[in-house]
Amino acid sequence: MRHFILFIAVIFLGLFLAVLNRTEQGKVIGGQPTLRVFGYSSFTGRWGPGPLLKEAFEKNCKCKVEFIEGSDSGILLQRLRIEGESLGADLVVGLDQFDLSKAMDEQKWRSLSLGKLDVYETVKPALSNNFFVPYDWGALTFVARRGELNHVPVTLDDLLSSELSKKIALQDPRTSSPGMQFLYWVVRSKGEEEGFKFLEKMMGQVHSFSPTWSTAYGLFTNKQAKIAYSYVTSPLYHEIEEKKKDYFAISFTEPLPVQFEFVGIPEFCRHCDLAEQFVNLMLSNEGQKIIMEKNYMLPVMKGVRENSVFANLPPMKTMDKFEILSTTEVDRLLKRWTEIRRGELN
Protein backbone atom coordinates (compact mmCIF):
# COMPACT_ATOMS: atom_id res chain seq x y z
CA MET A 1 0.00 0.00 0.00
CA ARG A 2 2.81 2.33 0.90
CA HIS A 3 4.45 1.70 -2.49
CA PHE A 4 1.13 2.40 -4.24
CA ILE A 5 0.69 5.71 -2.39
CA LEU A 6 4.29 6.65 -3.22
CA PHE A 7 3.64 5.76 -6.87
CA ILE A 8 0.50 7.95 -6.98
CA ALA A 9 2.39 10.81 -5.30
CA VAL A 10 5.15 10.61 -7.89
CA ILE A 11 2.57 10.64 -10.71
CA PHE A 12 0.83 13.71 -9.31
CA LEU A 13 4.15 15.45 -8.74
CA GLY A 14 5.13 14.75 -12.33
CA LEU A 15 1.82 16.08 -13.63
CA PHE A 16 2.15 19.18 -11.45
CA LEU A 17 5.66 19.90 -12.70
CA ALA A 18 4.59 19.32 -16.31
CA VAL A 19 1.73 21.81 -15.96
CA LEU A 20 4.02 24.29 -14.20
CA ASN A 21 6.67 23.90 -16.88
CA ARG A 22 4.12 24.30 -19.66
CA THR A 23 2.75 27.45 -18.04
CA GLU A 24 6.25 28.88 -17.67
CA GLN A 25 7.27 27.89 -21.19
CA GLY A 26 4.12 29.17 -22.82
CA LYS A 27 4.04 32.12 -20.42
CA VAL A 28 0.27 32.43 -20.48
CA ILE A 29 -0.85 34.79 -17.75
CA GLY A 30 -4.48 35.69 -17.20
CA GLY A 31 -5.42 34.01 -20.46
CA GLN A 32 -2.95 36.14 -22.47
CA PRO A 33 0.16 34.68 -24.11
CA THR A 34 3.51 36.45 -23.71
CA LEU A 35 5.60 37.05 -26.82
CA ARG A 36 9.27 36.97 -25.86
CA VAL A 37 11.57 39.08 -28.03
CA PHE A 38 15.37 38.79 -27.87
CA GLY A 39 16.94 42.16 -28.74
CA TYR A 40 20.03 44.28 -28.11
CA SER A 41 19.92 46.95 -25.42
CA SER A 42 19.59 50.09 -27.56
CA PHE A 43 16.58 48.51 -29.30
CA THR A 44 14.76 47.23 -26.25
CA GLY A 45 15.77 50.02 -23.86
CA ARG A 46 13.71 52.97 -22.71
CA TRP A 47 14.85 55.28 -25.49
CA GLY A 48 14.84 52.67 -28.25
CA PRO A 49 12.03 51.63 -30.62
CA GLY A 50 11.18 48.51 -28.59
CA PRO A 51 8.81 50.11 -26.03
CA LEU A 52 6.78 51.93 -28.70
CA LEU A 53 6.56 48.81 -30.88
CA LYS A 54 5.45 46.84 -27.82
CA GLU A 55 2.76 49.41 -27.05
CA ALA A 56 1.48 49.42 -30.63
CA PHE A 57 1.47 45.62 -30.81
CA GLU A 58 -0.28 45.05 -27.49
CA LYS A 59 -3.20 47.26 -28.56
CA ASN A 60 -4.41 44.55 -30.94
CA CYS A 61 -2.67 41.26 -30.17
CA LYS A 62 -4.47 40.27 -26.93
CA CYS A 63 -1.04 39.38 -25.60
CA LYS A 64 1.91 40.73 -23.69
CA VAL A 65 5.35 41.49 -25.12
CA GLU A 66 8.44 40.80 -23.02
CA PHE A 67 11.95 41.82 -24.05
CA ILE A 68 15.04 39.76 -23.23
CA GLU A 69 18.13 41.89 -23.63
CA GLY A 70 21.63 41.36 -24.99
CA SER A 71 23.99 44.33 -24.89
CA ASP A 72 25.08 43.98 -28.55
CA SER A 73 24.24 41.65 -31.42
CA GLY A 74 27.35 39.49 -30.88
CA ILE A 75 26.49 38.96 -27.21
CA LEU A 76 22.83 38.52 -28.13
CA LEU A 77 23.70 35.57 -30.37
CA GLN A 78 25.73 33.95 -27.60
CA ARG A 79 22.84 34.31 -25.18
CA LEU A 80 20.40 32.90 -27.71
CA ARG A 81 22.57 29.81 -28.15
CA ILE A 82 22.96 29.21 -24.42
CA GLU A 83 19.48 29.97 -23.09
CA GLY A 84 17.22 31.00 -25.98
CA GLU A 85 15.08 27.86 -25.96
CA SER A 86 14.87 27.60 -22.19
CA LEU A 87 13.81 31.25 -21.91
CA GLY A 88 11.28 30.82 -24.70
CA ALA A 89 12.60 33.19 -27.38
CA ASP A 90 9.87 33.72 -30.00
CA LEU A 91 11.64 36.40 -32.01
CA VAL A 92 15.24 37.62 -32.40
CA VAL A 93 15.87 41.23 -33.36
CA GLY A 94 19.20 42.82 -34.23
CA LEU A 95 21.47 40.29 -35.96
CA ASP A 96 23.51 41.78 -38.79
CA GLN A 97 24.86 40.16 -41.94
CA PHE A 98 27.97 38.88 -40.15
CA ASP A 99 25.84 37.06 -37.58
CA LEU A 100 23.56 35.24 -40.01
CA SER A 101 25.77 32.30 -40.99
CA LYS A 102 26.57 31.59 -37.35
CA ALA A 103 22.91 31.95 -36.40
CA MET A 104 21.91 29.43 -39.08
CA ASP A 105 24.71 27.06 -38.08
CA GLU A 106 23.66 27.09 -34.42
CA GLN A 107 19.86 27.25 -34.64
CA LYS A 108 17.00 26.25 -36.89
CA TRP A 109 14.74 29.06 -38.05
CA ARG A 110 11.21 29.34 -39.37
CA SER A 111 10.70 30.40 -42.95
CA LEU A 112 9.10 33.86 -43.20
CA SER A 113 6.19 34.34 -45.60
CA LEU A 114 6.02 38.12 -45.98
CA GLY A 115 5.20 38.44 -49.68
CA LYS A 116 6.85 40.99 -51.95
CA LEU A 117 8.35 43.87 -50.00
CA ASP A 118 8.61 47.36 -51.54
CA VAL A 119 12.14 48.11 -50.35
CA TYR A 120 14.84 50.50 -51.52
CA GLU A 121 17.31 49.27 -54.15
CA THR A 122 20.09 49.32 -51.56
CA VAL A 123 18.13 46.84 -49.45
CA LYS A 124 17.23 44.29 -52.14
CA PRO A 125 20.52 42.33 -51.95
CA ALA A 126 19.84 41.76 -48.23
CA LEU A 127 16.62 39.88 -49.05
CA SER A 128 18.72 36.83 -49.82
CA ASN A 129 17.12 34.13 -47.66
CA ASN A 130 13.73 33.11 -46.32
CA PHE A 131 14.69 33.03 -42.64
CA PHE A 132 15.75 36.60 -41.92
CA VAL A 133 14.40 39.91 -43.17
CA PRO A 134 16.16 43.29 -42.78
CA TYR A 135 14.20 45.94 -40.89
CA ASP A 136 16.71 48.81 -40.98
CA TRP A 137 20.15 49.68 -42.30
CA GLY A 138 22.88 52.29 -42.04
CA ALA A 139 26.36 53.19 -43.21
CA LEU A 140 29.19 53.35 -40.67
CA THR A 141 32.00 55.86 -40.43
CA PHE A 142 33.79 57.92 -37.81
CA VAL A 143 31.99 60.71 -35.99
CA ALA A 144 33.77 63.80 -34.66
CA ARG A 145 32.99 67.14 -33.01
CA ARG A 146 33.51 70.36 -34.93
CA GLY A 147 36.59 72.34 -33.98
CA GLU A 148 38.39 69.51 -32.13
CA LEU A 149 40.54 68.19 -34.97
CA ASN A 150 43.32 70.10 -36.71
CA HIS A 151 43.13 67.65 -39.59
CA VAL A 152 39.98 65.69 -40.31
CA PRO A 153 40.87 62.20 -41.64
CA VAL A 154 39.68 61.52 -45.18
CA THR A 155 41.37 58.15 -45.72
CA LEU A 156 41.93 55.13 -43.50
CA ASP A 157 45.65 55.91 -43.40
CA ASP A 158 44.86 59.33 -41.90
CA LEU A 159 43.66 57.50 -38.79
CA LEU A 160 47.33 56.81 -38.02
CA SER A 161 48.13 60.51 -37.43
CA SER A 162 49.80 61.50 -34.16
CA GLU A 163 46.85 63.78 -33.39
CA LEU A 164 44.64 60.71 -33.00
CA SER A 165 47.04 58.65 -30.89
CA LYS A 166 44.96 56.98 -28.12
CA LYS A 167 42.01 59.17 -29.16
CA ILE A 168 39.96 56.73 -31.28
CA ALA A 169 36.99 54.88 -29.75
CA LEU A 170 36.50 51.48 -31.40
CA GLN A 171 34.54 48.34 -30.64
CA ASP A 172 35.87 44.83 -30.15
CA PRO A 173 34.88 42.85 -33.29
CA ARG A 174 34.53 39.66 -31.24
CA THR A 175 31.56 41.04 -29.29
CA SER A 176 30.33 44.05 -31.24
CA SER A 177 28.69 44.26 -34.63
CA PRO A 178 30.15 47.73 -35.48
CA GLY A 179 33.56 46.39 -34.43
CA MET A 180 33.24 43.60 -36.98
CA GLN A 181 32.06 46.12 -39.57
CA PHE A 182 35.27 48.12 -39.07
CA LEU A 183 37.42 44.99 -39.43
CA TYR A 184 35.54 44.08 -42.62
CA TRP A 185 35.89 47.65 -43.98
CA VAL A 186 39.66 47.65 -43.54
CA VAL A 187 40.17 44.17 -45.01
CA ARG A 188 37.94 44.80 -48.02
CA SER A 189 39.37 48.29 -48.67
CA LYS A 190 43.06 47.39 -48.40
CA GLY A 191 43.13 43.67 -49.09
CA GLU A 192 43.64 41.16 -46.30
CA GLU A 193 47.42 41.26 -45.87
CA GLU A 194 47.76 45.05 -46.12
CA GLY A 195 44.62 45.40 -44.04
CA PHE A 196 46.04 43.45 -41.11
CA LYS A 197 49.32 45.38 -41.30
CA PHE A 198 47.22 48.53 -41.01
CA LEU A 199 45.23 47.08 -38.09
CA GLU A 200 48.47 46.27 -36.29
CA LYS A 201 49.43 49.96 -36.53
CA MET A 202 45.94 50.99 -35.43
CA MET A 203 46.32 49.21 -32.09
CA GLY A 204 48.37 52.11 -30.76
CA GLN A 205 45.87 54.67 -31.96
CA VAL A 206 42.84 53.28 -30.16
CA HIS A 207 41.80 54.53 -26.73
CA SER A 208 40.21 51.13 -26.04
CA PHE A 209 38.32 48.34 -27.78
CA SER A 210 34.93 48.41 -26.07
CA PRO A 211 32.71 45.32 -25.93
CA THR A 212 29.70 47.25 -27.27
CA TRP A 213 28.89 50.23 -29.48
CA SER A 214 27.29 52.14 -26.60
CA THR A 215 30.39 51.84 -24.40
CA ALA A 216 32.69 53.07 -27.19
CA TYR A 217 30.38 55.93 -28.13
CA GLY A 218 30.10 56.89 -24.46
CA LEU A 219 33.88 57.39 -24.33
CA PHE A 220 33.53 59.77 -27.27
CA THR A 221 30.59 61.76 -25.90
CA ASN A 222 32.44 62.06 -22.56
CA LYS A 223 35.40 63.52 -24.51
CA GLN A 224 37.80 60.72 -23.65
CA ALA A 225 38.16 60.14 -27.40
CA LYS A 226 38.21 62.58 -30.31
CA ILE A 227 36.46 60.32 -32.81
CA ALA A 228 34.30 57.20 -32.55
CA TYR A 229 33.28 54.55 -35.03
CA SER A 230 29.54 54.89 -35.39
CA TYR A 231 26.72 55.49 -37.83
CA VAL A 232 26.30 58.22 -40.43
CA THR A 233 23.00 58.99 -38.68
CA SER A 234 24.59 59.56 -35.24
CA PRO A 235 24.99 63.35 -35.66
CA LEU A 236 21.28 63.51 -36.43
CA TYR A 237 20.59 61.99 -33.01
CA HIS A 238 22.55 64.76 -31.29
CA GLU A 239 20.80 67.41 -33.37
CA ILE A 240 17.28 66.14 -32.70
CA GLU A 241 17.53 64.77 -29.17
CA GLU A 242 20.12 67.15 -27.69
CA LYS A 243 19.77 70.21 -29.96
CA LYS A 244 23.52 70.02 -30.68
CA LYS A 245 24.88 70.64 -34.15
CA ASP A 246 28.58 70.24 -33.43
CA TYR A 247 28.76 66.52 -34.34
CA PHE A 248 29.46 65.40 -37.89
CA ALA A 249 30.02 62.17 -39.81
CA ILE A 250 33.34 61.99 -41.66
CA SER A 251 33.29 61.22 -45.38
CA PHE A 252 36.12 58.88 -46.37
CA THR A 253 37.71 58.20 -49.73
CA GLU A 254 37.16 54.49 -49.14
CA PRO A 255 33.48 53.51 -49.67
CA LEU A 256 31.80 52.99 -46.31
CA PRO A 257 30.45 49.63 -45.11
CA VAL A 258 26.70 49.21 -44.74
CA GLN A 259 25.14 47.31 -41.86
CA PHE A 260 21.75 45.63 -42.22
CA GLU A 261 19.86 44.57 -39.12
CA PHE A 262 17.67 41.48 -39.36
CA VAL A 263 14.79 39.87 -37.52
CA GLY A 264 14.14 36.12 -37.42
CA ILE A 265 11.90 33.54 -35.72
CA PRO A 266 13.61 30.51 -34.12
CA GLU A 267 12.07 27.16 -34.96
CA PHE A 268 11.59 26.48 -31.22
CA CYS A 269 9.28 29.53 -30.92
CA ARG A 270 6.22 29.02 -28.71
CA HIS A 271 4.07 31.84 -30.06
CA CYS A 272 5.16 31.65 -33.68
CA ASP A 273 2.12 33.34 -35.21
CA LEU A 274 2.45 36.29 -32.84
CA ALA A 275 6.13 36.53 -33.74
CA GLU A 276 5.28 36.81 -37.44
CA GLN A 277 2.65 39.44 -36.66
CA PHE A 278 5.32 41.43 -34.80
CA VAL A 279 7.59 41.21 -37.85
CA ASN A 280 4.75 42.56 -39.98
CA LEU A 281 4.40 45.49 -37.58
CA MET A 282 8.13 46.21 -37.82
CA LEU A 283 7.85 46.38 -41.61
CA SER A 284 4.66 48.48 -41.65
CA ASN A 285 4.77 52.25 -42.18
CA GLU A 286 4.04 52.76 -38.47
CA GLY A 287 6.73 50.34 -37.35
CA GLN A 288 9.34 51.60 -39.81
CA LYS A 289 8.76 55.18 -38.68
CA ILE A 290 9.20 54.17 -35.04
CA ILE A 291 12.41 52.27 -35.82
CA MET A 292 13.81 55.12 -37.93
CA GLU A 293 13.09 57.81 -35.34
CA LYS A 294 14.07 55.83 -32.24
CA ASN A 295 16.87 53.59 -33.54
CA TYR A 296 18.34 56.33 -35.74
CA MET A 297 18.76 53.90 -38.61
CA LEU A 298 17.35 54.09 -42.13
CA PRO A 299 14.09 52.31 -42.99
CA VAL A 300 14.04 49.47 -45.50
CA MET A 301 10.54 50.18 -46.80
CA LYS A 302 9.91 52.91 -49.35
CA GLY A 303 7.82 55.93 -48.43
CA VAL A 304 9.02 56.25 -44.82
CA ARG A 305 12.28 58.19 -45.11
CA GLU A 306 10.89 60.69 -47.63
CA ASN A 307 9.74 64.06 -46.21
CA SER A 308 11.63 63.43 -42.98
CA VAL A 309 14.90 64.84 -41.62
CA PHE A 310 16.52 61.52 -42.58
CA ALA A 311 16.02 62.40 -46.25
CA ASN A 312 18.52 65.26 -45.85
CA LEU A 313 21.51 63.22 -44.71
CA PRO A 314 24.70 64.14 -46.61
CA PRO A 315 25.40 61.62 -49.40
CA MET A 316 28.36 59.31 -48.79
CA LYS A 317 29.79 56.63 -51.02
CA THR A 318 29.11 53.13 -49.70
CA MET A 319 30.25 49.64 -50.64
CA ASP A 320 28.01 48.28 -53.36
CA LYS A 321 28.60 44.59 -52.57
CA PHE A 322 26.50 42.80 -49.97
CA GLU A 323 28.13 39.76 -48.37
CA ILE A 324 27.04 37.18 -45.82
CA LEU A 325 30.37 35.78 -44.68
CA SER A 326 30.53 32.15 -43.66
CA THR A 327 31.08 31.30 -40.00
CA THR A 328 34.49 29.91 -40.94
CA GLU A 329 35.49 33.16 -42.65
CA VAL A 330 34.31 35.34 -39.77
CA ASP A 331 36.12 33.14 -37.25
CA ARG A 332 39.30 33.21 -39.34
CA LEU A 333 39.32 37.03 -39.53
CA LEU A 334 38.59 37.33 -35.82
CA LYS A 335 41.41 34.90 -35.02
CA ARG A 336 43.89 37.04 -36.94
CA TRP A 337 42.62 40.18 -35.21
CA THR A 338 42.88 38.49 -31.80
CA GLU A 339 46.48 37.47 -32.46
CA ILE A 340 47.39 41.08 -33.28
CA ARG A 341 45.57 42.34 -30.22
CA ARG A 342 47.21 39.78 -27.95
CA GLY A 343 50.61 40.76 -29.31
CA GLU A 344 49.91 44.40 -28.53
CA LEU A 345 48.85 43.62 -24.96
CA ASN A 346 51.92 41.45 -24.39
Results as ranks from 00 to 15, higher is better:
G48C: 08
F43S: 11
L117K: 00
V37A: 04
M104W: 00
L17T: 10
F38T: 03
S71H: 08
I68P: 01
L35H: 01
K108L: 10
S41E: 12
L52T: 09
L100K: 01
A139D: 11
I68H: 11
D96M: 08
T23K: 13
V143A: 04
A144E: 03
L20M: 11
L76G: 00
G70F: 06
E55W: 09
Q97F: 01
E58T: 02
E106T: 13
Q97N: 10
Y120V: 07
W47H: 14
K54T: 03
W109N: 01
R79C: 08
F98C: 10
V37W: 00
R22N: 14
A139I: 06
S41P: 01
E58S: 01
E58M: 12
V143N: 00
D99G: 15
K124N: 01
V123N: 07
L95I: 04
G70S: 10
W109H: 02
L17A: 14
A56D: 04
E83V: 09
A89C: 05
S111C: 09
T122A: 15
W109R: 04
L100P: 05
R79W: 06
L80A: 06
D99E: 08
G30A: 09
C61L: 01
T44M: 12
F38L: 12
D72Y: 02
F57W: 02
G26M: 15
L17G: 12
S42A: 14
G39V: 09
A89M: 04
R81M: 08
Y120Q: 09
E69A: 09
F131D: 05
K116S: 12
N60L: 09
L17W: 11
Q107E: 12
V92H: 03
E55C: 07
R46C: 06
V28K: 03
Q97V: 02
V19P: 00
I75N: 05
K108Q: 12
E55R: 11
F142I: 03
P33Q: 07
K27C: 07
F132P: 01
P125E: 09
E85W: 05
Q78T: 13
C61F: 02
N60T: 15
L53R: 01
S42H: 12
F131S: 08
E85I: 09
E85H: 07
I75P: 04
R46F: 10
E85R: 12
M104D: 06
P51S: 10
V19Q: 07
D105N: 12
P125Q: 06
S71P: 10
K124Y: 04
D90V: 04
R22T: 14
G94A: 03
E55Q: 13
G30Q: 01
R46I: 13
I29L: 13
K108F: 06
